[in-house]
Each structure stands twice: as structure tokens, then as C-alpha cells.
Amino acid sequence: MNEPTQRISIRALTLWRIHGVINAAVVALAAIGIGLLTYFFEWSMWPFIIISIILALEIILYIFVIPTLRWKRWRYEVREQEIELQYGLFIIKRTLVPMVRVQHVDSEQGPLLRKYRLATISISTAATTHKVPALDEVEAEELRHSISSLARVAEEDV
């Protein structure tokens, strides 16, 4: 089976790294807090050591490793009769959604996404919802249009 053809926007990488930085910053704050407590109240060093390790892992994984892997894996393809998605880090998922099953398409855009001119599309069937994250704004809009018009053509009960 061939992989789906389309990739999501390369700007998603930057976005996910920023998310990683924000997460790491929260953990770093906690680490500083614990460090201070350890210093002033003479706690044992263990909590501080553990949270430092977590922080290091967080930085390596969420800022560097995972965004790249995730972006490399993400593929999608919208054909006239079906949508195909491929995603996942360690578990690679391949999903097939027939156009006749699509009930509606939503796009959403948070403040960060907007800044990078990205949008997330979610495709809903009667029973499932499938998200394509961080598409280029314009592309997302086109996709939403084409899916909803294709889905309308292929209408049928349930």
C-alpha cells in the first residue's frame, strides 16, 4: 500500500516545539521551586534529582525528538471517494474514511496556530472524529470546502 501523498505544513514543527518549550517551562518552574525548598529546608536531594531528570527528558523529547518524528509520520490524502490518514509516533496508524460517511468538517485555530497561519481540521463521521493538525491556513480552508462539497455529493442515510 502506498503512503498518502500530502504532508502537513512544515511550520507545524515550529509550533510543536513552542508547545514543548511551554511545557518544559512549567516543569522548570516546578524544578526551581523544589530546588529552593531543598536549599532552605534541607530536604533530601531526591525530589530535585527526579524532577531534573524529568525536565531533561521533557526538553529532549518534546522539543527535539517528538515534533520531528511526528511531522515525518503525518500524511493525509483526500480523494473523491475517501480520506486517508497516517500518523502516530511508535504506533503508526492508518485510517480510511469513506466520503459517504463524513457528516461534517470543522476547522479550528487557536492563538498560536493563528500566529503561524495554521489550522486544525476535524472530520466527523456518525461515530468517529479524525483530526488533521497544523495544516496551512489556506490549505485547511480549501480542504474543508472540498471535503464538505464531496461529502454532500455522496450523501446517504447514516
Binding site: I92, K93, R94, P98, R101, A126, T128, H130
Partner: peptide, 13 residues
């Protein structure tokens, strides 16, 4: 077939 909403195949490395 015409009642299935979606099919997913998944696989770890």
C-alpha cells in the same frame, strides 16, 4: 461495508 464508519490499521515499529 456500507455500515462501517472508518477502518484503521495500526502498527508499532
Amino acid at each position: 461495508k456500507h455500515r462501517i464508519q472508518a477502518v484503521t490499521k495500526d502498527q508499532t515499529i
